[in-house]
């Protein structure tokens, strides 16, 4: 396994962990106030950072135990181009989501709490899509 794929794999596992945590936290989101949702999202960002660190350590140990060798991490022009393209895809996805959410707020009376949550979920989805694209382009 090469270092780049390992990084994307860790990122996807972290996204899955955070997604599961958020799913259980939001089981009663309709009763949450805007400030409570704000606090929850800040907590989620903190948890995703901690989860990323833990997942990095765990995956590195697991790959080591399974006898897999992580190839030396070399970042070359192709990796830079892939990173840039993935970043562009994330930005386009997130921007489109944001426009749709603004339209929903403006014309369909989407509440502030729901809008806040949807923006976060949109960012989350764009990030996961970007990681999957990277995995595809690194092949």
């Amino acid at each position: 396994m090469d270092a780049k794929r390992k990084q994307v794999l860790i990122s996807l596992i972290t996204a899955a962990t955070v997604g599961a945590w958020l799913y259980f936290q939001l089981s009663s989101w309709t009763s949450l106030s805007t400030s409570e949702v704000g606090k929850l999202l800040v907590k989620t960002i903190g948890i995703s950072i901690v989860a990323h660190i833990i997942n990095t350590i765990v995956i590195t140990i697991v790959v080591g135990l399974l006898g897999g060798r992580i190839a030396k991490d070399v970042t070359d022009e192709r990796d830079a181009a892939i990173e840039l393209q993935a970043m562009r895809a994330i930005l386009v996805g997130f921007s489109m989501g944001l426009v749709i959410i603004f339209a929903l707020v403006g014309w369909c009376d989407l509440g502030a709490t729901s809008a806040l949550l949807t923006i976060f979920l949109c960012m989350y989805a764009a990030n996961v899509a970007g990681d999957l694209l990277k995995l595809y382009w690194y092949r």
Partner: peptide, 22 residues
Amino acid sequence: VGVSRQTIVAIEKKRYSPSLDL
């Protein structure tokens, strides 16, 4: 040449055109 093995694979399979420098 200072790149990853995947880049060489991609060049050989014509999935990636290298820069003039590479």
